[in-house]
């Protein structure tokens, strides 16, 4: 009797069952949804594969992707950052305010990024030294940060037409490839390297997986946590500046509005566990593309924009469910 239990089941149905569906869904759930979506697009919208659509999609993905990459790191450390949109607004506001007051555009951008890094520093310090839950700290920055951005901004709707920012938004390398896509690929490459190759990322995952144990193996939890939120802030800054460059306009009230939702959704779909301990960069990239694609598809099919939200909700639930089964 006992022996039978251990004998592998050789019937064909048993074999079929033994392909671990759960595992496939768990590991490739996001990718599967992704494929399904593309197929759905292709079938429903003939124009989908035209180059224009693809480029628009990629440009749309840009800010969400950058923010989601930062969010991935934050979530893998066991935290959350809902202040990302506000940080985008602050960095954008600082950049434009300095530029319009006569500072050079490179230095302005540098200061914008620096301001975002400061916001990240603030988040990280409060979380690691004062032991306040990440969601509260970043909630404070979210509420106060946008007000601050609005205060920094001189004119509510500054136009940046015919400025270096506008050029940056329109510039195409060799006349073909938008510079934004190149920047995006570069950031992805850097983040992949960081997560796969550095001690910093291992320490981050360790803190996310078991903060107490991390301290006891000598991980510097303070600098690591601060580092995580600073990196996230800097990525938000790049996303913010690139966005204002693309639309040649700054509106501190709307810039990066609700982007935290899309970013968190992208991370969730990408399979980075919210309990921390693992950062899945490739998953997040897929997740971000899915989140944007949903919007694009809904738009192309001339459905009201709001369907996108409902679909995103469904996709998040399905993705989470698929990962749970593992």
């Amino acid at each position: 009797m006992d022996r039978n239990v251990n004998t592998p089941i050789n019937t064909s149905t048993g074999w079929l069952k033994s392909i671990a569906w759960a595992e496939i869904l768990g590991n490739y759930g996001a990718q599967l949804v992704f494929l399904t979506l593309i197929a759905a697009c292709a079938l429903s919208t003939p124009k989908f594969f035209s180059l224009g659509t693809l480029e628009i999609t990629l440009l749309d993905v840009f800010p969400v992707m950058l923010v989601a990459l930062g969010m991935t790191l934050v979530i893998s450390s066991g935290g959350i950052d809902i202040s990302v949109g506000a940080i985008m607004a602050i960095s954008g506001a600082v950049t434009v305010a300095l530029y319009t007051s006569g500072v050079g555009w490179v230095l302005s951008m540098g200061c914008g990024i620096g301001a975002a890094a400061l916001c990240g520093l603030f988040n990280g310090v409060l979380i690691s030294i004062f032991r306040i839950q990440p969601i509260i700290v970043t909630l404070v920055v979210m509420i106060a940060g946008r007000g601050l951005a609005r205060r920094i901004q001189v004119d509510p709707t500054t136009s940046l037409k015919s400025t270096p920012f506008d050029t940056l938004g329109l510039y195409r390398i060799a006349g073909k490839v938008p510079v934004q896509i190149v920047i995006m690929l570069a950031v992805i490459a850097v983040m992949l390297f960081v997560v796969k190759k550095t001690v910093f990322a291992k320490n981050t995952e360790a803190i996310g997986d078991n903060p107490r144990a991390a301290r006891l193996v000598g991980v510097n939890t303070l600098t690591t946590t601060v580092g995580v939120y600073v990196v996230c802030g800097v990525l938000c800054a790049i996303a913010g500046i690139m966005t204002i460059a693309r639309i040649a306009q700054l509106n501190a009230v709307t810039l990066g509005g609700f982007i935290e939702l899309d970013a968190i959704a992208a991370v969730a779909i990408g399979g980075t566990p919210f309990s921390g301990g693992r950062a899945r960069i490739l998953g997040t990239i897929t997740g971000a593309i899915i989140v944007i694609l949903v919007g694009v598809i809904v738009g192309l099919n001339k459905m009201p924009d709001d369907y996108a939200k409902v679909f995103k909700a469904l996709i998040i639930v399905i993705a989470m469910w698929a990962q749970r089964r593992k």
Binding site: A265, F274, A313, L314, V317, M320
Partner: peptide, 15 residues
């Protein structure tokens, strides 16, 4: 379904 509250209610929020 054991989805973390943050995510489950985020999905509900969008929906």
């Amino acid at each position: 379904m054991k989805i973390p509250p943050f995510i489950a209610t985020l999905a509900m929020m969008l929906g």
